[in-house]
Amino acid sequence: MTAPPRTAAFDKWVTIATPSPQSAVRLVCLPHAGGSASFFFPVSRALAPRVEVLAVQYPARQQRLREPGIDNIPEYADQIFAVLAELDDKPLALFGHSMGAILAYEIALRMQQAGRPAPVRLFASGRRAPSRYRADRIHEGTDAQVVAELKRLGGPNPALLADPEMLELILPAVRSDYTAIERYRHEPGRKLDCPITAVIGDSDPRVSDDEARAWADHTAGTFDLKTFPGDHFYLVGQAQNVIVLIDRALATPTR
């Protein structure tokens, strides 16, 4: 097995916190709106060396703070797919949380359309199916309204929301991400071949059981739904159970 390519574009978009070149499969993790690659570092450590985790770093945050944000899903997916296109030496799986679930879906579609091996599995966490919409306009709100929404969702870093200086740094990325996901519309007629596992918290205000089950309509492969106790960020409190779920699902990956 070889290490992933280390081009400048790859290093900009992808962080490998725990390199595992002998892994049988790679798992690309895509964060939520406003999130960063570091959110998945504990997952990387827990799954190594069996699974090598590639955490995607979006622009306009952390080491990419000075770059402009991306405010539409197709551009996001195009750029990430272009970086991942060199990974063809071992099976690839995708895990996306919230906005990241939609990005994972769109990247998988691009892999399929390009004639590349399909992901061995797509994990869609904390997000309704691509064809299910709500009339959300958070990206058009004031900073106070955006912060109120972040607090309502119970994000993993509540202290940041009480720090005016940190808010000034993170809000541009949050707003561009919310613009991207709230304006996203699924293109009918497209369907994946890979299996999909939807994972949600049982008290998530952003996705219902019915909205999560609708992911089944977006694949010709198998579908299953896993529900854990918790809200939109259920996976913080349920980290160990989510890691076991991923590990078992990827134990015998096939192309």
Rank of each mutant, 00 (worst) to 15 (best):
A101Y: 00
P19W: 04
D204G: 09
P91R: 02
I138Y: 09
R121Q: 07
R61D: 05
G221F: 13
P42L: 10
G35V: 06
I243V: 15
Q57A: 08
L225I: 12
I102W: 01
L92A: 02
T18D: 06
D217I: 10
D247E: 15
V25P: 01
L153F: 09
P229T: 15
L47M: 07
S38P: 04
T222F: 09
Y184Q: 05
P205E: 13
I246G: 04
L245M: 15
F41K: 06
R110H: 03
P21T: 13
A216D: 13
R26A: 03
E182K: 10
Y105V: 02
M1D: 07
L103N: 01
G154A: 06
P5Y: 04
D89S: 07
R137C: 09
G237Q: 10
A118E: 11
G154K: 06
P74G: 00
V174H: 09
A93C: 04
G126H: 05
L94W: 01
P68A: 08
S20I: 05
P19F: 05
K226G: 07
G115R: 03
G201W: 06
V244P: 04
T197H: 06
R190D: 07
R185Q: 14
A251N: 07
D224G: 12
P91K: 03
A8M: 03
Y105I: 02
A124G: 03
V120W: 05
S203G: 07
P74V: 00
S208F: 07
E187K: 14
R152D: 09
A173Q: 11
F95D: 00
N72V: 00
F40H: 02
D71P: 01
A173P: 11
E182L: 10
K191D: 06
R45P: 06
V147A: 13
V43W: 13
L153K: 08
H218L: 10
Y105K: 01
Q240D: 15
V236H: 14
A198S: 14
V120P: 02
A101S: 03
A46Y: 06
G201V: 07
P205D: 12
M111E: 03
G230Y: 14
F41M: 06
F95G: 00
P156Q: 11
A180E: 03
S203D: 09
M99S: 01
T222A: 15
